[in-house]
Design a protein around this nucleic acid. Structure first.
Lengths: 166, 166, 166, 166
DNA sequence: TTTT
DNA sequence: TTTT
């Protein structure tokens, strides 16, 4: 279809350590179980209520899978950006089942660790993780870059900035 | 949990007219079936491929439900912002089933029609729809504000969930 | 215009304590300075690079302003969802200036504190903050709903805009 | 900074044809002027109000620039995903100026055309545009792929799906 | 400057 | 089941 968008954004905590599985081609797939919660005050009873939602997150992206395996663990707080996908499968008795997942695959995915230097000890380790994305070319505007997915060009035209705001 | 976010953003087309159901309290719930697709060129075969994903969208928000009922129809292109929720239910044989939906309810939801004057045939109804949100207070920076939008209706209809996944 | 969307999502840290200003109508406006950074490895030199972006965030929403004032401080990590707005103003010499801000106002805004009570120990909370949104009706599917959130306050304070860009 | 997110999502219309500029390295930069509007009913006067916001969008991403140049024109409706960046520059008199832009560069950007066959005149060219993103690897789950940014693996482990929902 |  |  022309012009569609399928995006999920989650900020939540891992309910368990990442589940890492190897694939036949040598790659890895990482499954995460991520909780989001919301609280609100019931307008009738006035009592505090809470609802927790568990999300199944599947990471196919090579770089993000590596990050997940290396830096995430039970309790980690993460920012996740992926796509909604529903999969059909059969259980042992041959029954059709459906599973809807947040899939991180390809360019428009993101996984960023949100708790400081590890996730609890605060003894900063140097090295630590500072977010990861699809590739290393997040770049600023300066710098070369002539390979596929190059960006951050040096301008030829000088006038471009003269007329702003437009 | 402190500090979590649960957000889904879709741009896609309705696969069918909105399914409107009345609730016992007089409110309405609208179910949408929304398709998103993506195309890519297979890197091995080089052939064009396409994958369509179908999303079950449930609108509890009063204002957005009214909009959906009034302006959307099969084929409509929409921008949708809601939350991921998975519901457990039992089929006729008592088997547990799970259904994951994009729920529009409360303040952080949005529904915007993206095709101009109808959906292409332009014959339309005159008037047409120009986007809707939770309430009427989108406002600029000035203005008072004492009649905000209501949402989150009470309902107890049991039948609503019986036919999923669709 | 029919069918438009204007949304900014930030996860970053406050560069300073929130700047709270009272308006003539008794409401408050809170200004935040939020940093986001990205790192990447330069593809030519191979060296590590970093770029920090500073965002001016303006909170008109009553509930979110209260939250910002109560729970945020220099260094706080926040999730922010608002709208892009560019304002024109004149400096002392009468020169036209433009300032682009992320505005939190109305239903489709969000402000969530992302550093729990520290960032990892799970001991007592001492009150702590668990996210805030436009109103109290985040709710689950049940519940009534007749006291929605107010927003979009009137104000006429002129001084608020004098010191930008910060 | 560890763990930050800087994302802008716009759905709006071009106020003018794309402005394409060549760079010294042979690449192109495309500037767009995108309008978003919102309407609301003033709660005091009851009158209909509208506010239009103009966004300066700068496309450094090679693929997206090509798409913009080829398929967008004045009036086109687009979905845009990029980053907020503020640039400092000097006008002719040496005065410091700031310009805040939505930058499309690198992996986490998106540009999708939202109006079907052109933008209303429907004179269409055959072929037409169907959305574009950073790369061609949007892929589904099946298929090969062993180059950098490969995804869509074939599983070795068969059990992965058996235990859902988890 | 767009769009409805 | 949509759309291109």
């Amino acid at each position: 279809m022309a012009g569609s968008v399928n995006k999920v954004i989650l900020v939540g905590n891992l309910g368990a350590d990442p589940d890492v599985r190897s694939m036949s081609n040598g790659g890895k797939v990482v499954n995460l179980s991520v909780a989001t919660s919301e609280r609100w005050k019931d307008r009738n009873s006035g009592e505090q209520r809470e609802r927790t939602e568990w999300h199944r997150v599947v990471i196919f992206s090579e770089g993000l899978a590596r990050v997940a395996e290396s830096y995430l663990k039970k309790g980690s707080k993460v920012y996740i950006e992926g796509q909604l996908q529903t999969r059909k499968w059969q259980d042992q008795s041959g029954q059709d089942k459906y599973s809807t997942e947040v899939v991180l695959q390809g360019f428009n995915s993101n996984l960023t660790l949100l708790d400081g230097r590890g996730d609890g000890d605060s003894s900063g380790d140097g090295g630590g993780f500072r977010g990861a994305r699809q590739g290393d070319n997040a770049g600023g505007r300066s710098g070369g870059g002539q390979r596929p997915a190059a960006n951050a060009p040096a301008f030829e035209s000088g006038g471009m900035d003269d007329d702003i705001p437009f």
